[in-house]
């Protein structure tokens, strides 16, 4: 899952309206699966989409402002960092934002994991 320098280009994933408020959707980006979440405050978060525990689909999880809970076994991960609050291995966290055209812009650079 380590990032390559080449991947630092921003990726435009299309309209933010693809992701309903309070939910997540999965996107394939450069062969990686990325779950993009649209929080109730309107901001976005992006994490790798496969739960490290048993491979659950993270984009189908339930979220709040802080964490996403995997639907299979309720492991929770911080949306900002990917760190698990339930003792699982971490997810990859990515920078993501909304541009002026209301498109989802994803940076494939790793964000620092941890505090």
């Amino acid at each position: 899952m380590s990032a390559h320098p080449k991947r630092e280009l921003p990726h435009n994933l299309g309209s933010v309206d693809q992701v309903p408020v309070g939910e997540g959707r999965a996107f394939g980006v450069e062969g990686e699966q990325v779950a993009v979440f649209r929080l109730r405050d309107g901001s976005l978060r992006a994490l790798s989409a496969v739960c490290p525990h048993k491979g659950g689909p993270i984009a189908d999880g339930t979220i709040d402002q802080q964490v996403v809970m995997c639907p299979l076994h309720q492991n929770a991960f911080e949306l900002d960092t990917g760190c698990s609050t339930t003792g699982a291995e971490p997810l990859q966290a990515y920078n993501v934002e909304i541009d002026a055209e209301r498109n989802i812009i994803l940076q494939m650079t790793e964000r620092s994991v941890g505090n």
Binding site: P20, E23, R25, A26, V50, G55, P57
Partner: peptide
């Protein structure tokens, strides 16, 4: 909702 039935399945083999 948009994409209500869109796959969330990872590409990796599960």
């Amino acid at each position: 909702t948009p994409g209500q039935f869109r796959t969330s399945l990872p590409l990796t083999v599960l």
